[in-house]
């Protein structure tokens, strides 16, 4: 017996117009939101991913109203692009609005749904990018690669866990809270300064970790020695006695400065290779 058979077999509710969003529906959005980026494209970006996540719910809510269902389907295919871990939150809010639309007679302004989606995807993309890609991924890479350098399988495992536990947790909370909040409380969140505080906190963690990794993972070693006889010391150990890893940090800032000047990443990439080979040829740096 398939699900559609069950649906046919179950007697229709007494008020057949009334369809509500259940926890099971939200969980379906949660799982299907995992595919958001799968059909990313230049024109409308994550639009089919968004539609894919909302499809079962829209099917259910507008079961008896083909006109509204067509509108909802077309609405779900509008331009969409946001930070994937935060989109279930937007979908949860949209779900509550679609529910309202499905259960109101024609006087619900569906532009509101598009407006909310559009209003949220930009700011949330900024927050999600700096939270997940600027901070969490950096921490995951930092810890993961420090284990991987020794050939330890915990490297990749920790990498995945550190990124994905918050990722999946936020998705779950997002879709459930988003639905509860609906569209009404959004103003409060944006005004209360919670977002700004959160962004600032994420930036701080990201910077501390990048600072540590600039020391531990960027390797610039000067070749050559100075002095004679017993007084002989390597240039590198002299530099280390002033400030350990100073060249590593200097290189990070040099490249940062060049990027700010508008030098393209691909040129910098090529430049680093050419610089490395020249430095090796003249014996300036060592491996």
């Amino acid at each position: 017996m398939t699900t559609s058979d069950i649906e046919k077999a179950t007697p229709k509710p007494t008020n057949e117009e009334h369809e509500t969003v259940t926890h099971k529906d939200l969980m379906q959005i949660f799982w299907r939101s995992f595919t958001l980026e799968a059909s990313w494209n230049f024109e409308r970006q994550q639009h089919m991913g968004y539609a894919f996540a909302m499809a079962p719910l829209l099917n259910k809510l507008y079961k008896h109203d083909k006109k509204k269902k067509t509108e909802a389907a077309e609405r779900s295919l509008e331009f969409f692009n946001s930070s994937p871990p935060l989109t279930p939150f937007i979908m949860g809010i949209a779900a509550s609005m679609e529910e309202k639309n499905a259960n109101t007679d024609d006087d619900f302004d569906t532009h509101g749904i598009t407006a909310i989606k559009t209003a949220l995807m930009g700011p949330l993309a900024g927050i999600g990018d700096s939270l997940f890609w600027g901070t969490l991924l950096v921490i995951a890479i930092g810890i993961g690669t420090s284990f991987a350098a020794q050939g330890n399988i915990m490297g990749p495992i920790l990498f995945l866990l550190i990124f994905n536990i918050p990722n999946f947790l936020l998705r779950y909370l997002g879709v459930t809270k988003g639905y509860q909040i609906g569209a009404k409380l959004l103003g409060n969140i944006q005004n209360s300064g919670i977002m700004a505080t959160l962004m600032h906190a994420a930036t701080v963690v990201g910077l501390v970790v990048i600072g540590g990794m600039s020391g531990s993972m960027v390797s610039v070693k000067v070749a050559g020695q100075v002095g004679q006889g017993k007084a002989i010391t390597t240039i590198q150990s002299m530099l280390d006695s002033i400030l350990p890893n100073m060249l590593s940090l200097a290189v990070v800032f040099l490249i940062y400065w060049l990027l700010k000047k508008g030098v393209k990443t691909s040129y910098l990439l090529l430049g680093i290779f050419i610089f490395g080979i020249i430095a090796a040829f003249f014996g300036i740096l060592k491996v």
Partner: peptide, 27 residues
């Protein structure tokens, strides 16, 4: 050999580019 060494030196510097790209966003 010196090209091989140079490539490994470059590999040591390469993460700096990644960090610099992130710093553009955070700093």
């Amino acid at each position: 050999q010196f090209v091989q060494d140079g490539i490994n030196i470059a590999a040591g510097i390469m993460p700096a580019l990644g960090f610099a790209i992130l710093l553009q966003m955070l700093l």
